[in-house]
Amino acid sequence: MKLKLHIWRQKNAATSGKMTSYEMDNVSPDMSFLEMLDVLNEKIIERGEEPVAFEHDCREGICGSCGMMINGMAHGPEKLTTTCQLHMRKFNDGDEITIEPWRAEAFPVIKDLVVDRSSFDRIIASGGYVNVNTGGVPDANAIPIGKKVADYAFNAAACIGCGACVAACPNASAMLFTSAKISHLGSLPQGQVERMDRVINMVSTMDNEGFGGCTNHLECEAACPKGISAEYIAQMNRDMMKATFTVR
């Protein structure tokens, strides 16, 4: 198939970027979206120009490296799918495709489609863990956890930190990401000890990093490749209300 791509090109964080158009033909429907970009880059290199920088690693939808706005949708049109797992059979011959980086002040563009998501790491570093050192822990089966609770926690823990929630949110809010970790740990017995401090610390880091607030559009939920529910945001809100009035 033939495609026309409009891709955001930006040399580095200091310069401003612009959309640039590229024509592609002979795109196979069995290609993944990133393989299509690989082919484009080979052509660009052949012309002696600089290829499009984009992040990717595992290409099986789990590392969270890849991510771009494809026709205005984070990770493109297919639900529950990362960009690397999106295949060209989802597009039609003659389609025009706009490709942009995640846009958020807390995710500054590094180059082309590559953004800096280290703000997510700082949110985790401020409380997204259980405070235990290695060794000296009880036997794994000493803490029984009901299957439903375990599954609920697991579904939150499925977050891959790709940032699609932020990218898709009209407010560039990181609530889905932050709440997924808060709920994962907060719903397990192991996470109870610091549950209130955790929510206070992670929410203040999230706010200080410059993410927007939640206005319940639920675009995050639609964009999340792991199907993380906004239910977890509600849980974070409950914990935050409680923590606001109880934390010492």
């Binding site: 009901g146 299957k147 375990a150 926690a153």
Partner: peptide
């Protein structure tokens, strides 16, 4: 043991183990 203490959500049986 270590991973469970960290909150790794391993699959569980209905009885919680």
């Amino acid at each position: 043991d270590q991973c469970v203490a960290q909150g790794v959500p391993f699959a569980r049986e209905y009885g919680g183990l």
